[in-house]
Simulated scan of single mutants.
Amino acid sequence: MTQPVDCADRATARLSWARATTGDAGLGLVRASFDAGFRSYWRTSAGDAPGAPTLIVMDSPPDKEDVRPWLRIRELLESAGVRVPEVLAADVEGGFLLLEDLGVDTFLQVIDSDNADVLFDTAIDQLLRLQALPCPADLPAYNEAMLAFELRLFDEWYLGRHLGVALDCGELEALDLAYRHLVDAALAQPQVFVHRDFMPRNLMPVPGNPADGPAVLDFQGAVRGPIAYDPLSLFKDAFLSWPETRVDGWLDRYHARALAAGLPVPALAPFRRDADLVGIQRHLKILGIFARLHHRDGKPKYLVDAPRFVAYLDAVLPKYPELAPLAAIIDRHVRPAL
């Protein structure tokens, strides 16, 4: 199928494919969710079969988001017992998938201080299965180049483009040394299968089957990388913050369960240090990504959460004197803008 040249043509192609695939000529589509990337999700509405269950159409424009990595990682996760959305039909060339409808709410909408312990325990169930998955030889590595590229998003997009900051030579050297420390720390961790965005927004309660644990979404960027990355992402979320004492308790709970499952986690103290340092890398990266979404992609809403990541950094950086120059840059350039 040829990629449509504009949004109107794409919408027509999406609806035509959905109707042909379901055999329902009166089927409608309504927006189901919004994504930071180029994919979009659409829920079927009643057509010629008003009693039929709703389904989800994933629209992944082939020139922007190849759907094949999503399908491949989905198959790998399913083979490890991880709950993932069922694929009912696929047009790989056109970039359309027909998926089961898991409902409206993710963990982000349903989690609160009362149920967080239970929900996070079910999330850990899935995470342990995911991390135990053998990494295929051709799975991308979360290597030095990728880690450094992500860190550079912070100074290029957040400091430079968003705040208009031009660092002097001393600050650039200090930032390079901090980045070197963070990259080395990530590479020194035990390396496992990493989702890269394992957080409540990408976990969905499965209707009628709570024992199965949540369904895992948005996994196409999986890599072989540091074992502390996904648990840190789960508890220090991009859109939801928790008290440090609860985060510490959940990290300890994950660590105990990972040890019992035979995963290659280090002892608790070095694991907590690993989580802190890989968290700093992630927090800086996300600040850069949110600024890029605003300035390049016209999606300003994500920057509202920038103070959350500065708060995460504030809680961790004082523990590590070797990162004091990074803390100074944030104090000098970021904090006044907030």
Rank of each mutant, 00 (worst) to 15 (best):
D184Q: 09
D121V: 02
A148C: 09
G164S: 08
L139W: 04
G170C: 09
N115D: 13
F120H: 07
A186K: 00
F149E: 14
L167R: 08
R161N: 07
P134E: 09
F120V: 09
G170Y: 03
D121G: 06
N143W: 00
N115C: 11
F120E: 02
A145F: 13
F154I: 09
A132V: 07
L128Q: 02
Q126R: 06
R129W: 02
I111W: 04
G160Y: 03
V183F: 01
G160Q: 05
R196Y: 10
F120K: 00
R129L: 15
A174Y: 04
E173T: 15
D114E: 15
L177I: 01
V194K: 08
A141K: 05
A166D: 11
R180P: 00
G164T: 10
Q109R: 14
A141R: 13
A145H: 13
Y142E: 05
E156C: 01
E173N: 07
C135V: 10
P205G: 10
F193M: 03
E173I: 09
L127I: 06
E156A: 11
L182K: 02
Q126V: 06
A141P: 01
L172S: 06
D176R: 13
P190G: 09
H181R: 12
A123C: 10
A132E: 05
P134M: 07
F154P: 00
N202M: 12
P200D: 11
A137F: 04
E156K: 09
M204H: 12
D176A: 15
E171F: 03
D184S: 11
A137K: 09
M146E: 12
L119K: 06
H181L: 12
A186E: 00
A178S: 13
H195D: 11
